[in-house]
């Protein structure tokens, strides 16, 4: 049982205030969707929680099972059980996918996985996400299509088995087939009931595949409305306009 607790989080980028007091609690077994218009600060929330150096925390706390993540380095946060699936995974030349994944798994588990076991897990994970076997030898994210990048993020999610996963617009740029494959991966990850998911999205489409328990509307750097899955349907019908007006 794990809990991610975001308390009154305030974040700035180069002296510009982006997040203005975000409060949100995600527990194992729960899936929370954060929805909001572009520029509302949804991605800032994801990157600030993960510890990207571009973002300055100006107030608040982020606790994972009582440990303040904001006191930890980026890699320590990941090892504590936080995972961020990125919207734009960066290309890293010369670092192969298999080498990267082995390093990541070794770091998170605290010991190197047995080579045969790892190869088996990797193959199973790739098969489940319809990722071609040749992928493992390619350079990290280099020349990957948008869909391949997102599948690869979910592959990492399944291999690293974090306590809490933050998925930043994992659905953007995916065609329906890829969306289905990626959603199935997220659902496998949630199936144990021991993990929490914070799903950040602009569109309701992915919520038809990954059913949220809670929906939060993000606007102007804070949560402006909360509800159950029905709130997503309302957004689908009415759009974000009322919220953008209110926060402007």
């Amino acid at each position: 049982m794990s809990t991610l607790e975001i308390r009154d989080l305030q974040v700035a980028v180069e002296d510009k205030e982006i997040l203005r007091g975000v409060n949100l609690t995600v527990k194992s077994g729960e899936t929370h969707a954060i929805m909001g218009p572009n520029g509302s600060g949804k991605s800032t929330l994801a990157y600030a929680v993960a510890g990207h150096p571009k973002y300055t925390i100006t107030g608040g706390q982020v606790l994972l099972d009582g440990v303040d993540l904001l006191e930890l380095s980026v890699d320590e946060r990941a090892r504590a059980g936080l995972f961020l699936a990125m919207q734009y995974p960066v290309e890293v030349p010369g670092v192969s996918v298999s080498n990267f994944l082995r390093s990541a798994v070794t770091s998170v588990r605290g010991e190197a996985p047995k080579l045969r076991e790892f190869a088996k897990d990797l193959k199973a994970g790739m098969d489940a996400l319809s990722i071609d076997a040749s992928f493992a030898q390619r350079n990290l994210n280099e020349g990957f299509s948008g869909g391949e990048k997102k599948r690869h993020e979910i592959l990492q999610l399944e291999l690293l088995k974090p306590k809490i996963a933050v998925l930043d617009e994992t659905d953007s740029g995916l065609d329906v087939d890829a969306l289905r494959v990626v959603s199935e991966g997220i659902n496998r990850f949630r199936a144990s009931g021991e993990t929490g998911v914070l799903l950040i999205t602009h569109y309701t489409r992915i919520l038809r595949y990954v059913k949220p328990d809670h929906v939060h509307v993000f606007a102007g750097g804070r949560i402006v409305e909360e509800g159950g899955p029905e709130l997503a349907d309302k957004l689908e019908a009415e759009g974000y306009e009322q919220y953008t007006k209110a926060s402007a």
Binding site: P53, R77, A78, F83, V92, V95, S103
Partner: peptide, 29 residues
């Protein structure tokens, strides 16, 4: 590149090792 290091660190890889992987990759190609 900070973004390279961030990506690797976000997967739990400590800074020193992330740095080593990136440099090794850069020359290794």
């Amino acid at each position: 590149d900070d973004e390279h290091i961030f990506y690797l660190q976000a997967r739990g890889i400590p800074f020193d090792e992330a740095r080593r992987l990136v440099i090794r990759g850069f020359l290794g190609q």
